[in-house]
Simulated scan of single mutants.
Amino acid sequence: MGRKTTRRAPRRSSASSSPPTEPTPPARRGRTGARQQGAGTTRDLPTEEVRTSTGTARLVPDPDGSTGVTLLVNGVPSSHLDLADPGLLTFEYMQQMAAVLAALPPGPLRVVHLGAAGCTLARYVEHERPDSRQLAVDLDADLVARVREWFSLPRAPRLRLRAGDARAELATLPDASVDVVVRDVFAGDTTPGHVTTAGFVGDVLRVLRPGGVYLANCADRPPLALVRAELATAVAALTDDGPRDRDAWGDVGLIAEPGQLKGRRYGNLVLVAVRRPSAASPGAGDDPAEAGLDLDGATLARTLRSLPVPATLLTGQEARRFAGTAAPIEDPPPPAAAADPASSSLPDAAAPRGAAADGRHAVGREDG
């Protein structure tokens, strides 16, 4: 999990279109009438630090006595939820992601969240787009079980929770099967390197349907070298995705507070990439949804400027200039196989049949 910006928005987020929920509502019920799991108020949540698979988790109620709570993972603020209002987003980068989601065609979405934490954005998607189908992945198996116990989360198949490594789990998903992939993966306040590479982004594009969107929470410090490299990486992956009829820089964007773009402080920036249908694909462009998000249009930029903390969208040539000479991030070469003493004198010895080729580990359990 990463350090999230914690400046609070007004109690009602501008990213949500529904009316505020009463502070102490009756227990919510699922669509079938069954009572959902999860605390009704912050008084029902544990106050002590809890051990998890990768460290500790702690829940801190909002000091104003409301129904808001912040989830700290290993001491880092990783999620903020309002128990009574799943449509409320208070972290700035999540409001920015929500603005992108709102610009997509109406209706349910298929969303994969890499880095689940408290599932704040998954709750928001369910609230704003009922009947969506979502998968949330987190490395910490204990945390996956705890958030299901603590918070009122949608049940499977609307939201499936899976414990495992983000990249390994992404590799198991079918081609062109989801509308949105969200990367919000951190170790402390740093994004693990294996989910920043062109190979990883290429697998994201494989999983996205034509017109699908990749959203990445990029935390960086001045001079924002990592964010610049991530922009170059996304362009490289888009360029390798197949025949294109437009410059890949037109399909990437970077969202941030203007002060962050000037390198004034550490913070969260949101990278956006749109997978366009190949111009060579049969029927390309016939489905309006496949045209994808228009990053150059005025609507999204205007929405971002109207957020509680106004944000700027860089795309096209502005994004290219911001990235500058940054090079794409590549996966390291695979380690050389250890020599077999019994065959060291046979330079052409074949690899053992059935040897693992991709190095993926077994995945964790999935919680419905």
Rank of each mutant, 00 (worst) to 15 (best):
R206P: 00
D184N: 09
L226K: 13
L215G: 01
V201S: 01
A216E: 04
R160E: 13
A237S: 14
A216D: 12
V213F: 05
T191R: 12
Y214G: 03
A229C: 12
R183C: 06
A166Q: 06
A225I: 10
G164V: 10
R206D: 01
V204Q: 08
A171N: 04
A168H: 14
D165A: 10
A198T: 11
A219P: 04
L170D: 03
P222R: 09
F200L: 01
V201F: 09
C218Y: 01
L173S: 09
Y214L: 08
C218D: 10
R206G: 03
A236P: 04
T190D: 15
A163R: 04
R160T: 15
V181T: 06
V235E: 10
A237C: 08
V195R: 10
A187M: 05
A225W: 11
A163E: 07
Y214D: 07
A166R: 08
F186R: 04
T190K: 13
L161W: 09
G212C: 05
G199D: 08
N217S: 08
D175E: 15
A171E: 03
L170C: 03
N217R: 11
C218A: 14
L159I: 09
A168S: 11
A163N: 08
V235Y: 07
V195E: 01
R209Y: 09
P174L: 12
R221M: 14
P222Q: 09
G193K: 12
P154Y: 12
L205K: 01
G193H: 15
T172H: 13
R155M: 04
V207H: 05
T233C: 02
R183Q: 12
V195L: 07
G164H: 00
V178A: 06
R183N: 12
T197S: 15
P154T: 12
L205S: 01
A176D: 13
V181R: 08
G212F: 01
V207N: 06
D203W: 02
A176T: 11
